[in-house]
Simulated assay, not measured.
Amino acid sequence: MKTLTCLLLIASVNTAFGQHKFALSIQLAPICTHTNLKAIFPFADPATQSPNTEFSAVSNGLSYLVGVTARYAFSPKLSVGTGIWATHSATGKTNYVQNGFASSIRYKYNHPFTNLYKIPLIINYQSSTKRLSPYFSAGATFDLRGTSYVDLSGNGELIPIKVGKAVVITPLLGVGMTYNLSDHISLIVQPTIQYNIDSHPSYSYYHYYQLSLQNQLMYKF
Rank of each mutant, 00 (worst) to 15 (best):
V168Y: 00
S148A: 12
S199E: 13
F17E: 01
A140D: 03
H184T: 15
F17I: 06
Y64K: 08
G156F: 01
N14A: 14
G146A: 09
S50T: 12
P120F: 04
L211I: 14
G164L: 05
Y219I: 15
Q98I: 10
T141H: 09
S148K: 15
V150Y: 08
S50K: 05
I169G: 04
H207F: 06
I193K: 08
T141L: 08
A29P: 05
V97C: 12
V163T: 09
T94Y: 04
K108M: 14
S133E: 04
I105P: 00
L37W: 02
F43K: 06
S204Y: 01
A90F: 08
A29I: 09
N115S: 15
Y203T: 06
S63E: 12
S128Q: 08
I10V: 13
K162P: 04
K2G: 10
C6M: 09
N14L: 15
H34Q: 10
L152E: 05
D198S: 15
L65G: 03
L187D: 02
G81N: 09
Y72G: 07
I40T: 15
P201D: 02
F221K: 02
K118E: 14
S202F: 05
N180Y: 06
A11Y: 03
K162H: 07
D143P: 01
V175K: 00
L144F: 04
P42V: 11
F74Y: 02
I122H: 01
T178I: 09
L132W: 00
T129R: 08
I185Q: 02
G92L: 02
S75K: 03
T3E: 14
P201T: 10
S133N: 03
T35V: 15
S127P: 00
I169R: 03
F142V: 07
S75P: 11
S186W: 00
D198E: 08
R71N: 12
L132N: 00
N52H: 03
L37E: 15
F41Q: 11
I122P: 03
P160E: 06
N52L: 12
T53S: 01
Q126W: 01
R106N: 14
K21G: 11
S50I: 02
S204V: 07
N99K: 06
A57P: 01
T192A: 14
S50P: 05
F74M: 11
G164D: 03
Y219K: 07
F113A: 13
T141S: 07
I193Q: 03
P171Q: 01
F101C: 06
L173D: 02
I40V: 15
M1E: 07
T33C: 05
V167F: 08
R131F: 03
Q210F: 10
V167L: 07
P30T: 11
A73P: 03
